[in-house]
Simulated scan of single mutants.
Amino acid sequence: MGTLRKYLFNGVIISSLISGIGALRQQRKSPADWRTVLTWASWILSFMVALGTVRIESKKADEPKPKTKDEKERRAREEPATGPKPIKRARTKA
């Protein structure tokens, strides 16, 4: 994928831009007050999160796939864990 294309055609970015259009329409209808400032601050933060998400996803997609089991285990040790670890359940005899 091209460098700019991965940002332009990503659903997260498109959704964030559409919400920015909604914030712009809301600002035109109402007078500027503290709620307008909070609306724009939240939109800027959500847009930054969207950009970061696309960047992380593109880095993961560009990485070569591990070929051997040893390589998978080495990568698992090197990369920080994301999210909660799955719960290991004890096996019972049926």
Rank of each mutant, 00 (worst) to 15 (best):
T3N: 04
E63Y: 06
A76I: 14
D70F: 05
D70V: 04
G22A: 13
T82E: 11
G11R: 11
P31R: 10
K67F: 09
T3P: 00
W40L: 15
E63W: 02
L38V: 06
W40R: 03
E71N: 08
W34V: 02
L45F: 09
S58P: 00
W40H: 12
T53C: 05
W40K: 02
R5T: 13
M1T: 12
G52V: 02
S16N: 07
K69I: 15
S19V: 11
A61R: 08
K88T: 10
K85C: 00
K93G: 02
T92H: 11
R91S: 01
S42I: 02
L51P: 01
W34M: 02
V37H: 06
S58E: 12
L45A: 15
A90S: 09
K65V: 13
E78W: 09
A90Y: 01
I44A: 15
W43E: 12
L38M: 13
F47R: 00
R25W: 08
E78Y: 09
W40V: 14
V49I: 15
R25F: 14
R55G: 01
W40I: 12
V54F: 08
M48S: 11
L51Q: 07
L8N: 07
T39Q: 07
R25H: 10
P64G: 05
E71V: 05
A32K: 13
P80A: 13
D62P: 00
P86N: 06
D70T: 08
N10H: 15
S19N: 14
I13K: 01
E63M: 13
I13T: 09
Q27L: 15
A32I: 14
S58C: 06
L38K: 11
E79C: 03
T39Y: 00
R55F: 07
G83W: 06
T39E: 06
K60H: 10
I44C: 08
L51G: 13
T39W: 00
I18F: 08
F9E: 07
P66E: 11
P80F: 10
